[in-house]
Design a protein around this nucleic acid. Structure first.
Lengths: 168, 168
DNA sequence: CTTGCTGCAAAAGTTTTGCACACGT
DNA sequence: ACGTGTGCAAAACTTTTGCAGCAAG
């Protein structure tokens, strides 16, 4: 193997990266420079992201990969459980890093569309009780809450104030 | 108004239907035969449905409406809160009748894709606690659980048995 | 020399939109 | 005439796929 490939050798070997490489090898697939870069972009992401966001972000960083490759790589990252799918919106897939994370609740702001993800160990018990009642064997779950984020609440309060002042 | 319009007069005036008519009137919109028929199809649905399913179902019943009209009407039904959106799958919108219903959990079978919807009053408390911790003002929520339905479990058990017998 | 990977462009699938025509007042 | 509604076809948008050329063992 030519270990002077700059793109591969620059990769920081995070745990997730090792898992991905092992997964790919197990499937007879290759850990290519493109896949390394996409994983890196995914790892740099806090919170929920879309395929298109990833693409734009990489473009801005002058890292060129085709969308096709991004989609193909996201599939492999899903299979290897490094990311998981998050249902936030019915017209676009959303993903989040899952490696080493707890089940999540997602607080989606109806004003800003920003998403707060937070761990929710408490829900599992309720989930299991519900599933038991229906003879259903649970594998995973997700709670999505829609509402108004603190920022949007502050924004709304601000606007109300301004309206008041100008009408005084 | 011509009260001999067969399509309109055949409508059963369920509470949901009254709500929809009131909503439309309030918006300066009309309760047309197409909208009546679409609402009827929606009301006849137990559980979760997709726009396309609705379209096929109506076609089979020889009720002709265009997909465009279905999509447009679903929007109005959402606004009037007669139906709500359910996030089950990131590539297609799913809806469910919400009029008079409790917050739901959705048990999605990974084998059959069938969806069991069940009321879950218990989750609201947890939801509110989580939101409070984040200064988030909740409006609605949804729990989706992925797993194996009783039917699929039985199916799997059957197949295992058959495999055993044939190897005996 | 076979297998897998990439990028491109085309295709597929769902949802939206523009337009011309129809309906009711 | 005016508002709004409908169907059709085209457009928009995300995701998938086919293909040709490339890289690696």
């Amino acid at each position: 193997m030519n270990s002077s490939d700059p793109a591969i050798d620059d990769v920081v070997f995070t745990p997730a990266c090792s898992i991905f490489r092992r997964f790919l090898k197990g499937q007879g697939l290759k850990f290519t420079p493109e896949r390394a870069k996409i994983l890196e972009a995914v790892l740099s992401r806090e919170g929920v992201f879309e395929a298109d966001e990833l693409y734009d972000e990489m473009r801005q960083a002058l890292i060129r990969v085709s969308k096709a490759t991004i989609y193909r790589t996201l599939k492999h990252l899903l299979e290897s459980k490094i990311i998981r799918e998050v249902l936030i919106d019915s017209k676009q897939a959303h993903y989040q890093l899952s490696y080493g994370r707890e089940p999540m609740a997602y607080l989606v702001c109806l004003e800003t569309n920003k998403i707060i993800a937070c761990a929710t160990p408490q829900i599992k018990e309720i989930r299991d009780r519900i599933c038991e009642e229906h003879g259903f064997n649970p594998v995973s779950h997700q709670l999505v809450v829609y509402g108004i984020s603190p920022e949007a609440q502050a924004e709304a309060a601000n606007e109300a104030n301004e309206a008041n002042e100008s009408s005084d």
